[in-house]
Design a protein around this nucleic acid. Structure first.
Lengths: 225, 225
DNA sequence: GAGAAAAGCGAGTAATCGCTCAGATAATAG
DNA sequence: CTATTATCTGAGCGATTACTCGCTTTTCTC
């Protein structure tokens, strides 16, 4: 039932490498311009200027193509975050936070529909593990940064910050915003509020049927199963 | 090319109404437990304990089923937001904000994968108009609430707040969190930071190739096309 | 150059899945 | 009861599309 999503074979000649690039390029292009529904293997091959046969030499399934695109994008994100943290070494907390936010915006806002369609495509791919790993990698880097700031629960804070930043950038991107500075300023306010405002004393205003065990506080997010 | 997404006919007998409910129930169940990829009409019918034929008596297309689920969920959201604002009339800003956040959490966290998959499914449905209308309805209510707080650009603020809150709740839900109080407190900090922290003077630290026209400021989000 | 290996081709196959329709069954009316 | 209307059934049609395979062309090796 479940077919492979791993690449089939490595290209050995230059033209083969070019073919692989053309395929990925074409798929990304279709995702940005025509949407997920238009993404079928015949169309990808056509747009890439190769035959379906060639496509299937390097990717055993259509999902493998999407997987590779997602993996590359993730690699770029991790790199960008890493770089932005390195670049800001020695700077103030505020400056470094701004760098982080700017890097995230730059990464996500350039091709907003591609970004969104990739997130959607993930729903059809068996990538939960890799997603966890990515989040872990980001959490490590960002958590290390936050750790120096006396933030309490670093794991939770990291998850929240990523979610907050992603949510706001995605919404802005889909709304057609291109002014990165304005967006960065707004995200910065939310992030600073999250990180710096005092934690409210836990008023136990009961909040509906709280059917969970009162776990949590300083042990990281609970993962299902 | 585009088929209808409106219900086909109203059930007139009790058992027919039960059939419709069973179908919607089954579809939602599949979305929560098995994911979007497993959502096909044969499977829905099977799980609902009816035949495909019956399914197509009430829903002309598969998309019509998803549309109905989404519409119901939206109706519940608007109702919950409205109620939470009414309930808090006369209370302080802080209390009302907390009510809003609690309502959003209650709405989104119960079936987190269903919520996520519905958002994804929307990408395949011709619901832009309704989505705009929903956002407008929420923006009106929330904007009216925010308007009394001296927030500058209410439209942008509303969009940002919704994105921020949704992002954080979704992430927490998918991570398996069930402690609503803890989550509400964190979201509250981010929201308050966004709303109450002073807008930073616009430092023109150039942020990459800012290829957009410097539009924006106080005129609401720019929508594509 | 010859031979081998890699890359490319694209018509065709097979599987999936949305959806129909001809007829069976149940509820309701008179 | 009969007639009528509402509901339900599920085998299978049709369209889409992921994927294969036998063959050709290009590049590499010696």
């Amino acid at each position: 039932m479940q077919r492979s999503i791993e690449p089939r074979k490595k290209p050995r000649q230059a033209r083969a490498a070019a073919t692989v690039e053309a395929i990925l390029q074409a798929a990304a292009h279709i995702l940005e311009r025509e949407g997920l529904a238009a993404l079928n293997t015949n169309h990808i091959a056509e747009r890439a200027g190769v035959s379906v046969g060639s496509l299937y030499q390097y990717f055993p399934t259509k999902q493998a193509i999407m997987t590779e695109i997602i993996r590359r994008k993730r690699r770029r994100l991790v790199d960008a975050i890493t770089l932005s943290l390195q670049a800001g070494e020695g700077e103030s907390f505020d400056e470094r936070l701004d760098r982080l936010i700017a890097a995230a915006i730059e990464h996500q806002i350039e091709w907003p529909r591609l970004a969104r369609n990739l997130e959607i495509a993930e729903a059809f791919l068996p990538l939960q593990e890799e997603t966890e790993a990515l989040n872990q990698a980001l959490a490590d880097k960002i958590g290390c940064f936050l750790g120096h700031q006396g933030i309490g629960d670093v794991a939770v804070a990291t998850m929240d910050l990523i979610a907050l930043v992603r949510g706001m950038i995605d919404a802005a991107g889909l709304a057609g915003e291109t002014d990165r500075t304005f967006l960065a300023e707004r995200i910065g306010r939310a992030a600073r509020g999250y990180l710096l405002l005092p934690q409210a004393a836990v008023k136990t205003r009961s909040m509906g049927h709280s059917k969970g065990i009162a776990q949590r506080r300083g042990s990281g997010p609970t993962h299902r199963r």
